[in-house]
């Protein structure tokens, strides 16, 4: 009575087949990641040393270290964050907590979405036009960072707005009903409960900014400058551009062909470390959450 029929068996075979197929596809996904990481570690690992990280490049970049590029990236990312975080968080708070749903906010939302879709090379050209030429910042850290900031703004805004909106509406109502103003509600209840999401978004943004090449190429980063920048008006080297240059622009002698892998390994290490910090932070704050 309960024996399997031919139809049942057929269906079960199909079911198993599909499951295996889907699993294979999923495994294929992580193959590139594994290959990249393995290759970087195998080829770039031996290059890494204290000296590699903390000395200047020499012999036309075929030897020496990456310190100016490393510090340049730190400069670029920091200044970009200083510009994009206050602006993005403020805009997100306005859009999420104050603005009503009308044509004005809908237009702004549309603009944000479009801004997120602009290719980075277009941002680069915008940066040249706006910051380098129009505002006369010249090719400098300031111009490059502002270009990066414009590029990362949509992500900061969206991440912030999402974490603000994850705060239950009931908390706001509770506050309003005790006579709190909007700002009191935001400061005492909404922000403390969304700060983890906002910071996570910001940190993830850092890792993205660190790897961008196109936007800084024409606006402030240079291929070779074997000393550290002293202010936002200087040009600088950067990890991403350094990698590009090493891989395509510099004829590397036999003994130095692994250098670009070393640079890539450090860059990806920075990005992964940032992401790890962000994840750890999120876990820690979630543990502290009281609802």
């Amino acid at each position: 009575m309960f024996a399997a029929t031919e139809l049942n068996n057929g269906n079960r075979r199909t079911q198993t087949l599909i499951k295996v197929l889907l699993l294979t596809m999923t495994l294929l996904l992580i193959v590139p990641v594994l290959i990249i990481l393995t290759m970087l570690i195998v080829k770039g690992g031996p290059v890494l040393s204290f000296e590699f990280l903390f000395s200047d490049p020499k012999d036309e970049m075929t030897a020496g270290g990456i310190f100016p590029a490393l510090m340049g990236t730190v400069w670029l990312v920091s200044v970009a964050l200083l510009a994009s975080v206050p602006l993005g968080v403020a805009a997100a708070i306005y859009l999420s907590e104050y603005a009503g749903d009308n044509w004005f906010t809908r237009t702004i939302n549309l603009a944000i979405i479009n801004l997120a879709g602009v290719p980075s090379i277009v941002h680069a050209l915008f940066g040249v036009g706006a910051f380098v030429l129009f505002f006369k910042f010249g090719t400098s850290i300031l111009a490059a960072s502002l270009t990066l900031a414009v590029m990362t703004l949509p992500v900061v805004i969206v991440a912030t707005r999402e974490s603000l909106q994850a705060v239950p509406q009931a908390f706001r109502e509770a506050c309003w009903n005790m006579g709190a103003t909007r700002w009191q509600t935001i400061r005492r209840v909404v922000l403390p409960n969304s700060i983890s999401g906002i910071l996570t978004g910001v940190i993830l943004e850092v890792s993205r900014t660190a790897g961008e090449t196109a936007p800084i190429m024409f606006t402030g980063a240079v291929i070779f400058m074997p000393f550290l920048p002293e202010g936002v008006g200087d040009q600088t080297m950067a990890m991403s551009l350094h990698l590009y240059a090493m891989a395509t622009q510099v004829p590397l002698p036999e003994h130095a062909t692994n250098l670009p892998y070393g640079v890539a390994l450090v860059l990806i290490g920075m990005v992964l470390a940032m992401n790890a910090v962000s994840i750890g932070f999120r876990v820690w704050l979630r543990g502290k959450k009281k609802w």
Binding site: P168, A170, F171, E173, W176, G179, T181, W291
Partner: peptide, 21 residues
């Protein structure tokens, strides 16, 4: 002033909504 209105008039909701404090 709305804040004064809300101060005089307290409201309790269907679902308890304590703040996460």
């Amino acid at each position: 002033e709305l804040v004064q209105v809300r101060k005089q008039i307290g409201m309790v909701f269907q679902r308890p909504n304590p703040l996460p404090l």
